[in-house]
Amino acid sequence: MRDLLGLRVLVVEPDRTLAFVLADALTLAGARVVAMCSNLSEAARARGRETPQALVVGTRSTGSPEAAARDAQSWGLPFLLTCDRPVSVGDARNARCLTKPFCYHDLVEGLIDCAFAHDAPR
């Protein structure tokens, strides 16, 4: 399995326990988690302290994953959206939807696919 090579990741996850699990998994894979936030508004404030290179955005079953995907896409960063059902992230080459439940390998590989999409041949 590949690793995340020091990639600076901002974790946006409303469930604090899951945010810690995601952060630990990403750290084990070589990422540097710059912040953990419960929503994108909070993440926007944290973004000024240390610039992330990618986002992992979790959605609640009661929220709109499509709206979360649009909001994440507006950041202009690679992002991995974790949700309860498959969601289109548009034609963005640097975005993926990861359906829950998922394993550590899927999380890491999904974020690598997003973050390093520009390195892959078309």
Rank of each mutant, 00 (worst) to 15 (best):
T17C: 07
C83G: 12
E50P: 02
V108H: 00
H105K: 14
V56L: 05
T62E: 12
G30M: 05
A95T: 04
V108R: 00
S88A: 13
D91G: 15
L107I: 04
M36V: 11
G58C: 09
D15I: 14
A92P: 02
T99K: 06
G48P: 03
V108Q: 00
G63D: 13
F102R: 07
N94A: 14
C103W: 06
D84C: 10
R45H: 12
L98Q: 00
P86F: 08
E66F: 09
V33L: 06
A92R: 13
S41I: 08
Y104C: 01
P86H: 10
T17Q: 11
S61D: 12
L81T: 04
S38C: 13
T82Y: 03
P65R: 08
V56G: 01
T59P: 00
A67E: 15
L28W: 08
T51W: 09
P78G: 09
V87A: 14
V89D: 00
W75Y: 15
A46G: 06
G110I: 02
L81N: 03
R16A: 14
T99G: 01
K100L: 11
N94S: 14
R16F: 08
S74R: 13
P52K: 06
A67K: 14
G110H: 01
L98H: 02
A69H: 05
C83Y: 03
P78Y: 05
R47V: 07
R16E: 15
D91V: 07
R32S: 14
L55M: 10
Q53S: 08
V21G: 07
A35Q: 12
L80Q: 05
R85H: 13
R45M: 10
A72V: 09
E50N: 07
C97F: 06
G63C: 11
L81H: 06
W75K: 08
C83Q: 07
P101G: 05
C37D: 02
G76H: 12
V87M: 10
E66N: 08
C103M: 11
L26W: 03
A67I: 09
W75F: 15
S61A: 15
R16G: 06
R70P: 02
A25T: 10
S74L: 09
V34S: 06
P52Q: 10
R93H: 11
L98Y: 02
L40P: 03
A31H: 03
A31I: 06
A54D: 02
